[in-house]
Every structure is written in structure tokens, then in C-alpha cells.
Nucleic acid binder design. Sequence first.
DNA 1: GCGATATGACTCTGCGGTAAGTTACCACGA
DNA 2: TCGTGGTAACTTACCGCAGAGTCATATCGC
Lengths: 207, 207
Amino acid sequence: MARSNAGTKGVPRAEREQQILAVASLAFGTDGFAATNLADVAADAGISKPLIYNYFGSKEGLFAACLDEAGDLLAGEIERIARGDAVGIERGIRTLDGMFAVLDEQRHLWRLLHDRTAPPNGAIADVVSHHTQRIDKLAHEGVTELLALAGDTDERDISVMTAAWLGIVDSLMDWWVAHPDETAAQMNDRVTRLFTALLTDIVRGQS
Amino acid sequence: MARSNAGTKGVPRAEREQQILAVASLAFGTDGFAATNLADVAADAGISKPLIYNYFGSKEGLFAACLDEAGDLLAGEIERIARGDAVGIERGIRTLDGMFAVLDEQRHLWRLLHDRTAPPNGAIADVVSHHTQRIDKLAHEGVTELLALAGDTDERDISVMTAAWLGIVDSLMDWWVAHPDETAAQMNDRVTRLFTALLTDIVRGQS
DNA sequence: GCGATATGACTCTGCGGTAAGTTACCACGA
DNA sequence: TCGTGGTAACTTACCGCAGAGTCATATCGC
């Protein structure tokens, strides 16, 4: 009977999965979970929708896989930095530098972990909470050290400050995504300059 | 024929619109534009879906109306503070205090202006950009003043720092939403304490 | 009676998910 | 070297449903 495009193209599953993950991560990271539709992802990846379902089970399964890859990349880098000997502001700057380096060619990955349109329960929530816990733990640890230098050990103060720090990181990444011509090295310089400017010159100027 | 619940209940349009806006703002602010469905909003407001369409035209129209109300509240308050004589960090703290005061009983309104699931074109985008421009302009102005104290006048530095500042505000509001028992006055104290701690004690401690 | 206020019961579209079948590759026996 | 059967890689064509948006109609105040 009539022709069909079915049949293997000789691409092994593992390789195909990586292709799909790359396309899907870009789509999810750019448009968010809810606004991404799998037919488009399949088309962009050059395959058909059922193949995605064969390999990842569901839209949530695909997102969870993207998330796991991105989360591990980010949390791994932050953990690596935390093992160093930097303290206080210095540790913050080094962490940012690490993020810039790791995300340089795939800045959209940052958004995956903060997608408010992803379902708040189920497999996705587990993956998200696994990685955010790794990250939050280290952020909390860094902020605790920092505030200790100022004699503040109030647990809620630490909690608020940790949130603010994560907010700073988030907004810097957003800015970076919106300015594709800015290199990681330039961001690096900029952040260092801003931090030292704020923490030394302004205090001296105001006192 | 058979009974019907149709017919006026004596509620004038202006009043009904306010009821609907209140319910819708809560839903949009909590769940986001995409995840909110109008049938639920109508049910929560104690009316039927077609009435919403009569008064607001579409889901986007309703969201735009919520947005306009919230945006004006926020931008208006920030403009009021900006007219004062505070400069640098002090201006930042006063702005935050203003936000806490204005949003105390309706913290969810904050999220409306930052809803990534809202359509990026059309009427909504116009309202968003109108209000965010008012806010961004003042944030930019405040940051420019602040960095000038440190001798930094690089335009991109200012842009990044403005983004970071807005990120801080955003994350503080999120934290506040997540901790409903925290009063505006407590947030106020906490923020003041943290800013002064960071900017004085830490510098002295490190130098 | 007439206009404003209201609703039950629809239609229609987009998208997550699936059933059933098609083609290519490959190991292995004669 | 050539079948040949099994399996992995793929697709077309469909289902079902949630939710945006609409139509015709009903009731109340004045």
C-alpha cells in the first residue's frame, strides 16, 4: 500500500534521547512547562510525538528528565565551589562565576528549576525539591557564615537573606539571558566590580 | 418554562466588577494566568461565567483589569516614595517599607506584574509594560544615584544592578507570601537590620 | 414594557495521550 | 551467502477532555 515514513532511521535510543532532551530543555526553559506543547518539541527534534512518549512516558516525564540533567549540573557546580575555602562575599562571587561558566552556552537551563507552571506534585516536584534542597542548603550555609560576620544569628533573618540571595542570582541570570552578547567573563567582572563597589566605597562615602 | 436563576440581583455593574476583580486578582496572583480558569473564578465570585465575559470581554481583558489596578497601586506608592528625599540605601529601605505597607492584606498582587504565563503580546503586554516602565524608571534612577556614590557610572553596570535590586524586592515579596504570619512591621525591621548589618559590620569585620 | 442584570447549556479548539501498524537492522542457521 | 525471524526504531491517524468563548433566554427594578 501507500508509502510510510515509519521505520528506524538507525539512531540508537540513547542518542535520540539526548537530542530530544536538548530541544525540550530549550523549549521548557524558554516558554515554561505549561506553554510548551510536545507536538512542537517533536517537530523541532525532527521526530514524531509518539516517540517522545515511548522514551519518556509523558510530558511530565520528559520535563523531569530535563530537570534532572539541569539540576545536577547546577547543584554539582555549586557544591564544587562550596568545597573551596571562600567565605562571605567572596564565596558569593565565586558561586556566581561558577554559574556563568557552566551555563554559558545554555542559559535557558536556569529557568527549569524555577518554573511556576510545572505541576506542584508528583515526579516533577520530587526532582525539583531534590535539587533545590541541595542548592538551598549551600545558600543557607553561605548566608549563615556571612551574617555571622555581622553578629546576626537570627534564624528568620538568615532565611530572608537566603531568599534575597537566591533572588539576586535569579535576576542576574535573567538579565544575562536577555543580553546574549554579554560573555561569562564580562558578567564575572561586572559582578565583582559591583559587589566591591557597594560594600566598600558606599559605606565609606556615607559614613 | 422551568425555573431559572437568571435575572438581576440588584447588584450594580460597578460593584459587581469590583467583586470579580478581587476574586480574579487572588486567583491570577496565586496560580498564574495560564493555570487560572474562569469557571472557577466565576464560582468563587458567586456568579456565572458569561457575566464575566459581559463585563470584561475575555480572559485577557479580565487579567488586564486586575493588572491595571495592582500596577497602579504599586507604581503609585513607589513614585510617592521617590518624591521624598532619601538617597542610596535609605531610599531602597523606604521603598520596601512602602511595598510592605501597601500590600499587607493582598500580597498576592505582587505576582501579577511578573506572570510569565501571561501572553507576551496584545492588551496585557501593554498594561504590563506601562506599569513596569514606571517602576523600572524609578529603580534605575535610585540605582544610578547609589552607584554614583561609589563612582560607578557604567550604564550596563547600572542595568545589571537595577535587575538585581528588582530581584531582591521580588524574592522578599515571595518570602513574605510564604510566611503569612510575618507582619509588615516585622518585615520592615528585618530588612533594615539586614541592610545595615551587611553594609557596615561586614565591611569592618573583613577589612 | 424596556433596559440592565443575569444564567443554563451549548460549541469549538488545542493538546496530552494512545492504538495499530510500518520499516530497518541484525543475529544466526543452512 | 543467503534467507528469515525477532526486535528496536519509527509514524499516521485517531481519541478524549478541559477550558475559552457564545447564544438564546429569563427575571427584576423602574
